[in-house]
Measured scan of single mutants.
Amino acid sequence: TTVVVGNKKYTFDNPEAAEKFAKKVAKKLGATVHKTNGTFKVK
């Protein structure tokens, strides 16, 4: 599962961990999490 934050990509074996990370980053940046085909995008 990939999490994309700006131009950085983070890969997780565990989708739950990926989602948690994405939400944490989004909260910090005041952004939102978008899920597309198993990829979480923070923007």
Rank of each mutant, 00 (worst) to 15 (best):
residue 31 A to P: 01
residue 22 A to G: 02
residue 35 K to M: 11
residue 26 A to Y: 02
residue 40 F to G: 03
residue 43 K to T: 14
residue 15 P to D: 09
residue 12 F to M: 03
residue 4 V to L: 14
residue 5 V to N: 02
residue 18 A to H: 00
residue 29 L to Q: 04
residue 18 A to V: 01
residue 10 Y to R: 03
residue 43 K to Y: 15
residue 22 A to D: 00
residue 28 K to I: 10
residue 22 A to P: 00
residue 12 F to P: 00
residue 12 F to Y: 04
residue 8 K to R: 13
residue 33 V to F: 05
residue 42 V to F: 04
residue 37 N to D: 12
residue 17 A to P: 04
residue 26 A to V: 02
residue 26 A to T: 02
residue 24 K to Y: 15
residue 32 T to C: 09
residue 10 Y to N: 01
residue 18 A to L: 01
residue 24 K to I: 11
residue 18 A to G: 06
residue 29 L to A: 04
residue 2 T to N: 10
residue 22 A to N: 00
residue 39 T to D: 14
residue 17 A to R: 09
residue 5 V to H: 03
residue 15 P to T: 09
residue 14 N to R: 08
residue 2 T to I: 14
residue 25 V to W: 11
residue 18 A to N: 00
residue 30 G to E: 04
residue 34 H to Q: 13
residue 14 N to M: 07
residue 12 F to R: 01
residue 21 F to A: 02
residue 41 K to W: 15
residue 24 K to W: 15
residue 2 T to K: 09
residue 41 K to L: 15
residue 43 K to G: 14
residue 19 E to N: 05
residue 33 V to I: 09
residue 22 A to H: 01
residue 18 A to Q: 00
residue 5 V to F: 05
residue 20 K to A: 13
residue 33 V to S: 02
residue 11 T to Q: 10
residue 6 G to S: 04
residue 1 T to P: 08
residue 6 G to M: 09
residue 27 K to V: 08
residue 7 N to G: 07
residue 12 F to C: 05
residue 38 G to V: 03
residue 18 A to P: 00
residue 34 H to K: 07
residue 41 K to T: 15
residue 39 T to E: 15
residue 2 T to H: 13
residue 28 K to N: 07
residue 19 E to A: 07
residue 13 D to K: 13
residue 27 K to Y: 09
residue 31 A to R: 04
residue 33 V to T: 03
residue 41 K to A: 13
residue 31 A to N: 03
residue 4 V to K: 06
residue 1 T to S: 10
residue 13 D to M: 12
residue 29 L to I: 11
residue 7 N to Y: 13
residue 21 F to T: 01
residue 31 A to C: 05
residue 1 T to D: 05
residue 30 G to Y: 04
residue 30 G to M: 05
residue 1 T to V: 11
residue 43 K to P: 06
residue 26 A to E: 01
residue 39 T to W: 09
residue 42 V to I: 11
residue 1 T to A: 13
residue 39 T to P: 03
residue 2 T to F: 14
residue 28 K to T: 08
residue 20 K to P: 02
residue 27 K to N: 08
residue 13 D to Y: 10
residue 14 N to E: 08
residue 13 D to G: 11
residue 23 K to F: 15
residue 32 T to R: 07
residue 4 V to R: 07
residue 43 K to R: 12
residue 38 G to M: 05
residue 10 Y to V: 04
residue 3 V to T: 02
residue 19 E to T: 04
residue 30 G to D: 05
residue 14 N to H: 08
residue 20 K to N: 11
residue 41 K to S: 12
residue 43 K to L: 15
residue 29 L to Y: 08
residue 11 T to D: 07
residue 30 G to H: 07
residue 22 A to F: 02
residue 15 P to H: 09
residue 18 A to Y: 01
residue 33 V to R: 02
residue 26 A to S: 04
residue 11 T to Y: 13
residue 25 V to P: 00
residue 42 V to Q: 01
residue 3 V to F: 01
residue 35 K to H: 10
residue 21 F to Q: 01
residue 42 V to H: 02
residue 27 K to G: 06
residue 4 V to A: 06
residue 23 K to Q: 12
residue 41 K to N: 14
residue 22 A to I: 02
residue 6 G to H: 07
residue 5 V to C: 06
residue 41 K to Y: 15
residue 11 T to I: 13
residue 30 G to V: 03
residue 8 K to L: 09
residue 2 T to Y: 14
residue 5 V to S: 03
residue 17 A to Y: 10
residue 14 N to K: 09
residue 6 G to D: 04
residue 2 T to C: 09
residue 7 N to Q: 10
residue 31 A to G: 15
residue 4 V to M: 12
residue 9 K to E: 08
residue 41 K to M: 15
residue 23 K to E: 10
residue 5 V to E: 01
residue 15 P to C: 11
residue 23 K to H: 14
residue 2 T to Q: 10
residue 17 A to D: 10
residue 25 V to I: 13
residue 8 K to Q: 09
residue 40 F to A: 03
residue 42 V to A: 01
residue 43 K to H: 12
residue 3 V to P: 00
residue 11 T to A: 08
residue 11 T to R: 14
residue 19 E to D: 05
residue 19 E to H: 08
residue 28 K to L: 12
residue 12 F to W: 04
residue 14 N to Q: 07
residue 23 K to S: 08
residue 16 E to T: 12
residue 2 T to E: 08
residue 16 E to W: 13
residue 7 N to W: 13
residue 12 F to H: 01
residue 19 E to R: 08
residue 15 P to L: 09
residue 17 A to F: 08
residue 9 K to M: 12
residue 4 V to E: 14
residue 42 V to W: 02
residue 18 A to I: 00
residue 36 T to D: 14
residue 43 K to D: 12
residue 3 V to G: 00
residue 12 F to V: 01
residue 15 P to F: 12
residue 10 Y to C: 05
residue 38 G to A: 05
residue 9 K to W: 12
residue 28 K to D: 07
residue 35 K to W: 15
residue 38 G to S: 06
residue 34 H to S: 11
residue 36 T to K: 07
residue 9 K to Q: 10
residue 25 V to C: 07
residue 30 G to W: 03
residue 4 V to I: 14
residue 7 N to I: 11
residue 26 A to P: 01
residue 27 K to S: 08
residue 32 T to V: 11
residue 25 V to K: 04
residue 29 L to C: 05
residue 30 G to R: 06
residue 23 K to W: 15
residue 28 K to G: 05
residue 28 K to F: 10
residue 37 N to G: 12
residue 13 D to I: 11
residue 41 K to H: 15
residue 22 A to V: 04
residue 24 K to F: 14
residue 3 V to R: 00
residue 35 K to Q: 09
residue 8 K to F: 11
residue 15 P to S: 10
residue 23 K to T: 12
residue 11 T to M: 13
residue 12 F to G: 00
residue 29 L to T: 05
residue 21 F to P: 00
residue 33 V to M: 05
residue 6 G to Q: 05
residue 24 K to S: 10
residue 20 K to W: 13
residue 24 K to A: 14
residue 37 N to S: 05
residue 32 T to A: 07
residue 2 T to W: 13
residue 23 K to I: 14
residue 17 A to H: 09
residue 39 T to Y: 14
residue 27 K to T: 08
residue 38 G to N: 09
residue 42 V to G: 02
residue 4 V to D: 05
residue 30 G to K: 07
residue 27 K to M: 10
residue 27 K to C: 07
residue 34 H to L: 13
residue 18 A to R: 01
residue 6 G to P: 01
residue 31 A to F: 11
residue 43 K to A: 14
residue 20 K to F: 12
residue 31 A to S: 06
residue 1 T to L: 06
residue 5 V to M: 04
residue 17 A to S: 10
residue 4 V to F: 14
residue 42 V to E: 03
residue 38 G to W: 04
residue 14 N to W: 06
residue 40 F to L: 15
residue 36 T to Q: 13
residue 34 H to F: 12
residue 29 L to M: 10
residue 5 V to K: 01
residue 43 K to C: 15
residue 7 N to K: 12
